[in-house]
Design a protein around this nucleic acid. Structure first.
Lengths: 263, 263
DNA sequence: CTGGTGCGTTGCAATATCTGCAACGTCCAT
DNA sequence: ATGGACGTTGCAGATATTGCAACGCACCAG
């Protein structure tokens, strides 16, 4: 809508790929060098880009600080975190928390597996929306028409032989997930990795987030992982209760929540 | 330099404080509502802001994803991380990694203490630059004139009775730190918290990052913490060696480094 | 039911703002 | 020296951005 801003913002993902010099930025943007320079300058003033010693531009610190603030404001995350940690302590596997936002599902928290073999994922990174267990739960809860619209728009990459192949199959899967109130991903994203997931609901019953436990075949079989389902669901329910204000917040470890700012 | 971009970017920190509606954004920016609307729309298209169900705007997901990418590109961080973890396993306390960037020092990695009492800090958050041990190391290594310029510009908040009171004292402290090659913060930020820090150097000998171990008095005394100094320095040196390419990268646990993307 | 208030949204005309150009400075390698 | 690559600046023209005023809509109170 606003050309100047549009161009300026386009610079950021570009720099995320790695440092770039002025000429490169200008080229990729399709504008004159002087224009790119002025945009970069503005970004720089706000701390969004940083000019390293070799004169090339990198993403700046303020960006990181902002994102961190953004995450702290997500109150589901804050409430859920101790529960995720506890769950991880109980089962040892990687625990994820994800939310849906504008056609994307993204991880907003993660507790690493205690086993040496870990799965690759990244907080803030959009998840493989057509196969991830958490994505299924989040999409399954969208209103009928919106869900349909989103599902139709998606691509269906065949990560493995068990990936969801197309919209139709996905809709069917979502219906099932919606029905049973939990979801799995059995090797749909990476051949050897399985997940079990459960929804976290707000006071009105709508799914606000989803959590999952993931483990590679070499550690536990899919069947063994499924035995954790009740535990995962209980954890998710506990978070739901706390998030929607039904459960009096119970602090297993009150020192876990330090004061914001001043001592 | 560019008014439009400038205004657009100013919206982000504003939203970081919490969700805001159009009117509020327009007011704070000092522009007409329609102008604010168009800026927000552009930010929205890029995923930097998100419109929640009550129509108010929040910081968006792309911001988080970008910041995460930005951090992954910091290669000091990547190299240092396993070392930080190992150090944490050895001593049990909170370990921080920080870099200097444009008049600020900020944490770019953190491994939490295993003790229940933890210190409050946040990745991406600028540190208390006048007192933090890591900040001293990073500033101490700046070229004379630049260091002086920065130090003069700073505020010297008295967090505690032992905080650095003014520029003069700070310069003196920096000289000492520069001399000895390590730094401490003994209750300068929070009465009951002490830190020991050591520098990480690039191939040219310049300090590229600094790491610290922090622990509250209730867990270990300052003297006890100081006994960790040799260990901290060895760790920092190990990171330096690897970062500057002198040391052949040695994998204590090769499975620690998952492949990027595809399996 | 109705009038009012608060909010987001749109079309428009005026102009302030941004753009691309061309020229300059600097650094580096040939 | 000399050429090229790169970042930087002043300028005039063009275009994108702005604020206004009017509209639509939802919500609330009388």
């Amino acid at each position: 809508m606003s050309q100047t801003v549009d161009r300026a913002l386009s610079i950021l993902p570009l720099l995320a790929e790695g440092p770039a010099d002025l000429g490169r930025v200008a080229d990729r943007l399709g504008v004159h060098k002087s224009t790119a320079l002025r945009l970069l300058r503005t970004l720089h003033e706000h701390g969004f880009v940083y000019r390293q010693s070799d004169q090339r531009y990198r993403l700046g610190a303020r960006l990181i600080a902002l994102a961190q603030e953004a995450m702290e404001n997500l109150d589901v995350r804050e409430i859920a975190h101790p529960h995720l940690v506890r769950l991880n302590e109980q089962c040892g596997h990687t625990v994820h928390l994800a939310v849906y936002e504008e056609d994307e599902v993204l991880y907003i928290d993660k507790v690493e597996s205690r086993y040496p073999v870990r799965m690759y994922s990244r907080i803030g990174k959009p998840v493989a929306i057509t196969v991830a267990a958490v994505a299924k739960l989040l999409l399954a809860d969208l209103p009928e028409n919106e869900r349909r619209a989103v599902v139709e728009k998606l691509d269906y990459p065949l990560y493995t032989a068990r990936s969801t192949p197309h919209a139709e199959a996905f809709l069917k899967e979502l219906a099932k997930v919606r029905e049973q109130g939990w979801a799995t991903d059995l090797g749909g994203h990476e051949e050897s990795i399985n997940c079990v997931a459960a929804p976290i609901r707000g006071a009105d019953g709508r799914v606000v987030a989803a959590m999952s436990v993931s483990a590679p075949n070499v550690v536990v079989t899919a069947d063994e992982l499924l035995t954790l389902l009740p535990l995962v669901r209980r954890t998710a329910d506990a978070i739901s209760g706390e998030y929607s204000g039904r459960t009096p917040v119970h602090h297993a470890d009150p020192l876990h929540h330090p004061e914001k700012e001043t001592p």
